[in-house]
């Protein structure tokens, strides 16, 4: 009962802050910019991926450049940067209050510290989900509105995947759900850093740095890291949303509607992310329960 009250208070605080709307505004703006770019220069963008094949195949630039394709492009560009927007809110959850001097007032109230942390985590998660819903509205429905729908082509490093128009929408929803899990991991980490800190910038910067470091380690693609860090790095698994756009094919090379290539790896990635969320949350709760509030 108290938990619900706390959650409502946290949400109220989040959505009364101007900084919250920076994130929503930024997303809307990036999406619109990408949409504009692809509306005007869609062919050039596609050529980036298909250049090596333009001698062998007729590339149907126009039909490829549909709403689904644009949405995937937007997600590719945007989801890498959304952790920053999540950190901006979640990283400020505890340390921001320490800075304002409200943490000592709140903790001195008849509420449990564990409850407090969990309500802040839950509120961050809801914020993440709302960001993604917002993104879905602009990037998915907006793109469908502007570009129409159609078969989806997804480019990977060594192959491309074509999916039937009617086999695409569920993939977006699955991808958004997965992205929510991935970004919740970031929120949990930012919240943990936030519990350790008494200024609000530190945890935000720390979160973003961790994401950058692991992303770089992952992109280096050297065996040293591929075999040691990467299988357990959460940035590796955060990309799992892309897995829903990798379709399985028959021996004859025909894709199977409704299939996902190696779904077991997606289950594993989701498991790893959940594990991280639990780990971060446990550390945060245990630390905060014993913390002397000196701010």
């Amino acid at each position: 009962m108290m938990f619900i009250t706390l959650l409502r208070i946290e949400l109220f605080k989040i959505f009364k802050r101007p900084r919250t709307y920076i994130a929503f505004g930024a997303i809307a703006m990036i999406v619109l910019l990408v949409q504009l770019a692809l509306k005007v220069n869609g062919k050039d963008f596609i050529q980036l991926y298909t250049d090596s094949q333009s001698d062998t195949f007729e590339i149907p630039y126009e039909s490829m450049n549909n709403g689904y394709f644009v949405c995937v492009a937007v997600l590719h560009m945007i989801l890498i940067h959304v952790p920053l927007l999540v950190a901006l809110i979640a990283g400020d959850m505890i340390s921001g209050e320490a800075g304002l001097g409200t943490l000592r007032l709140v903790v001195g109230k008849p509420i449990g510290r564990t409850e407090l942390i969990l309500s802040k985590f839950m509120a961050s998660t809801i914020y993440v989900v709302m960001l993604l819903v917002w993104m879905a509205i602009f990037a998915l429905f907006g793109s469908i509105l502007l570009f129409g729908s159609g078969d989806l082509v997804v480019f990977r490093e060594e192959n491309m995947h074509l999916m039937n128009q009617q086999d695409v929408l569920w993939r977006f929803f699955a991808a958004f759900v997965f992205a929510a899990l991935a970004l919740t991991t970031i929120a949990a980490m930012a919240l943990m850093f936030s519990a350790f800190s008494e200024n609000s910038l530190g945890p935000i910067v720390a979160t973003v740095c961790v994401v950058i470091v692991f992303t770089i380690v992952q992109q280096l693609k050297v065996p040293l890291f591929e075999q040691t860090i990467n299988p357990w790095s959460f940035t590796t698994h955060m990309l799992g949303w892309k897995g829903f756009f990798y379709v399985e094919k028959t021996a004859e090379g025909v894709t199977i509607d409704g299939s996902v290539e190696n779904p077991a790896s997606l289950v594993k990635s989701a498991g790893v992310l959940l594990g991280y969320i639990l780990l971060f949350l446990t550390v945060t709760v245990q630390y905060f329960k014993r913390k002397d509030i000196l701010s």
Binding site: K13, K16, R17, P18, L100, G101, T102, R104, L105, G108
Partner: peptide, 12 residues
């Protein structure tokens, strides 16, 4: 309790 100088939630 009021402890030291609380800034409270400035944005509210």
């Amino acid at each position: 309790a009021v402890i030291e100088r609380p800034d409270l939630y400035k944005y509210l």
